[in-house]
Design a protein around this nucleic acid. Structure first.
Length: 581
RNA sequence: GCGCCCGUAGCUCAGCCGGAUAGAGCACCAGAUUCCUAAUCUGGGGGCCAUGGGUUCGAAUCCCGUCGGGCGCACCA
């Protein structure tokens, strides 16, 4: 095995070779898809070291029965160096026993590759655009934005590690009505900064104090020039300046979480460049946009509802329950109208698109996917476009829900939470559930120092390793790979968990599920803690055995590699590995 | 009314493209601490994988219905 081919990858190719041999021998028809052939650790360790489902997957298309095919395949697999046994079990699994030397070699691979252990070329350098956060630039980040921000950022890092070129993008909605409200809110604060008594912030404007600094700047720069001027005179200036100020604040909030986007795309610039018009023209030419009337909203009664003729996208053709307007009656673009043009533009610069959205936008998924698919197909450059929905997070304090109200400005800001519990806790916690499930974020639980808290549990494993290496050094022992034959069965169990990391990375990247990395790290930490405690009863199983320098050097080498792996995994999540607790 | 997500142990959750006897943690019970960090570990009890059908050699996993919970259903963003 070369140092760049990890164990699972190597066995995947061994099985490929064995299947080729069966094809050559006529035992297996040629050309069967092997896409579902897997090599994985068996559920029960007594079954062996690695198992493959190849015979079961291929039996049916091959027109044979799984056991017979398994017989033939296992006869090939026992020829592979390092395989010490192959047994057929259950409906047709082949369980392989692997020589200790193979596992030891994998441990050396971790040492040789270091931070690159687990890195994959699965992505083949293809470009993926991950758009996440994209909060409206009307105020600071609050906790409602947090989960999507963390999931998107971890996914971007994971995809990079799995061989993709990733662009982290933030779509700035600086063109809708909400930024006009922002501008008016700032104008009020501007008048206030010039000494006017403005009283309570009226309903419909943003009340937050965070608008005061930019308003004060505008007051200093323009004096009373705009205090009594008609809105048309100042709206664009105030809007532009306010949005810029909000973005500075948002970027600072994101930086607290360790998040940095590569690209901030402006909706206003997109519109100024005429992109939505281009999209509309093409869609009209292909009968996907027409002028028509919207149905009255169902499930709720609107007093002011009246039918109007608008340009509509035929999203009902794609499973939506009604066609959707791309322009408002005043001629300006709807969010959707601009957004489809935006995604079309993004698709031109990447091989694949991934959007991370809050679950409250679930209703708009069908229409945007339909529109983007139509546009990219039409341009002859259809691109995979996935939208990952991230469900709500309920904040709890002492078991009681924390109430948030944007109206009163009483929302929990991201900055406050990061300050209270720390970046690493926020990031790791947000990744300890699959994103499509709702989650609770309990301030008390996430900072608890116990194994109930995965953040802590994983960090503790790394701290123990660091501590052990320090103690070893004090006693004159350094990790060494010279005598790894000293490692026995208990140590191999730990290495087996470690060896799954590369496979885990690829599976998580393929599924776009960074939370799997967090769960894996919890398992790895558990395996480490379990091994560690063997030494409680049996001092000869401790990492540092003073009277046996060779053994100690080998065990410290193992500890160092597990530590390396924890660091690799944590860095995918954007979490620092702590050396001391 | 419609769309999307969820429903797995008392609680909180994993379960990868359908695969072997459904797994963790908490809680509960019984143990381990002159220890390299016991902030941990070992063992035990606890399941109709919401429910009814279907597809399959094989379903927690895929499909359809039902029930329950969440989110959404503007020319907003």
């Amino acid at each position: 095995m070369t140092e760049n081919v990890t164990l699972h990858a190597a066995f995947a190719s061994h099985i490929d070779v064995a299947l080729d041999a069966l094809e050559a021998a006529g035992t297996l028809p040629t050309g069967l898809s092997r896409a579902n052939v897997a090599v994985e650790p068996p559920r029960d360790v007594s079954h062996g070291d690695l198992a493959t489902n190849a015979a079961m997957v291929l039996a049916k298309p091959a027109g044979t029965n799984p056991r017979a095919l398994a017989e033939a395949l296992s006869a090939e697999l026992v020829k592979v160096p390092g395989v010490t046994g192959a047994e057929i079990a259950g409906p047709g699994f082949i369980n392989l026993k692997i020589d200790h030397a193979v596992w030891i070699a994998e441990l050396r691979a971790i040492a040789a590759l270091g931070g690159d252990y687990g890195r994959s070329d699965m992505g083949g350098g293809r470009t993926v655009n991950v758009e996440y956060v994209s909060a409206n630039p009307t105020g600071p980040m609050h906790m409602g934005h947090c989960r999507g921000a963390v999931v998107g950022d971890a996914l971007a890092t994971l995809l990079e590690f799995a061989g993709h070129k990733v662009t982290r993008e933030y779509y700035v909605n600086d063109a809708g009505g909400q930024v006009d409200v922002l501008a008016r809110s700032v104008h009020l604060r501007y008048r206030e900064a010039l000494g006017e008594a403005v009283g309570e912030v009226p309903e419909g404007l943003y009340p937050g104090d965070y608008l005061i600094p930019v308003a004060t700047e505008l007051a200093a720069e323009f004096g009373d020039k705009y205090t009594a001027a008609p809105e048309a005179d100042w709206l664009v200036t105030f809007r532009t300046r306010a949005v810029a100020a909000m973005l500075v604040m948002i970027k600072a909030d994101l930086a607290l979480l360790g998040i940095h986007h590569d690209l901030f795309s402006s909706e206003a610039e997109l519109q100024a460049a005429g992109k939505p018009e281009e999209a509309e023209k093409w869609l009209r030419a292909h009968d996907l946009v027409y002028d028509g009337q919207l149905e009255a909203p169902k499930g709720k009664t609107l007093d002011d509802w009246e039918p109007v003729e608008l340009p509509l996208f035929r999203s009902t053709r794609f499973g939506d329950d009604q066609d959707r307007p791309i322009k408002k009656s005043d001629g300006s673009w709807t969010y959707f109208g601009a957004d489809l043009a935006y995604h079309f533009q993004k698709a031109a610069s990447a091989d694949a698109l991934v959007d991370i959205w809050g679950a409250d936008h679930a209703g708009t998924v069908k229409r945007i996917k339909a529109a983007v698919a139509a546009l990219t197909q039409g341009a002859g450059q259809e691109k995979p476009f996935e939208i990952k929905l991230v469900q709500m997070v309920q904040l709890l304090r002492n078991g009681e829900p924390v109430k948030m109200s944007k109206r009163s400005g009483n929302f929990v800001t991201l900055a406050d939470v990061v300050q209270e519990v720390g970046k690493d806790v926020v990031r790791f916690t947000m990744l300890t559930r699959k994103p499509e499930a709702q989650m609770d974020f309990d301030f008390a639980k996430v900072v608890e120092a116990s194994k109930d808290n995965p953040v802590f549990y994983v960090q503790y494993a790394n701290a123990r390793i660091a501590s052990t290496l320090r103690k070893g050094a004090e006693a004159g022992f350094a990790p060494s790979g010279e005598a790894l034959d000293q490692l026995g069965a208990e140590e191999l169990e730990l290495i087996k968990v470690a060896a799954q990391f590369p496979r885990l990375v690829e599976a998580a990247a393929a599924a776009r599920e960074p939370h799997r990395v967090a769960f894996y790290l919890y398992d790895l930490a558990g395996a480490f803690h379990a091994y560690w405690n063997v030494g409680n009863d049996r001092p000869e199983k401790r990492f540092i055995v003073a009277q046996d320098g060779k053994l100690t050097a080998a065990r410290l080498y193992l500890a160092a590699q597990i530590g390396q792996l924890l660091k690799n995994g944590l860095s995918l999540l954007g979490v620092e590995a702590v050396e001391e607790m």
